[in-house]
Amino acid sequence: MRGKRVDGASGRGKPIEVRLNGQPVEAYEGETVLALLILHGERAGAPERGPFCNMGVCHDCLVTLSHSDQAHPREARACLTAATDGMSVFIGPGGRR
């Protein structure tokens, strides 16, 4: 873990099921995928980069997302994407280009 949730789970949405590289992680409705990456010490994007801007500019938080109700996985900037129940987030090779 890196950093922390202020006030823990309180004031957040309902707990949801999200997998990060196949592993279930603690997550709440409204949290962005980037927040989960940070809390779980994952860096996304290219191997030697971490997210820089949290506002959609740097693209160093690109992840691949799949969801049971979607036909194809899609790439997205983690900072602009809300985690949703049942989402799987993949980073590392294949997560970027």
């Binding site: 950093g3 922390k4 949730r5 202020v6 006030d7 004031g11 957040r12 949290e31 962005t32 980037l34 927040a35 940070i38 809390l39 971490g50 997210p51 820089f52 801007c53 949290n54 506002m55």
Partner: peptide, 15 residues
Amino acid sequence: MGAGAVQTLLKSQKI
């Protein structure tokens, strides 16, 4: 990270 990124993670995500 940018200081702004650290700030927006706090004010928007409470992290």
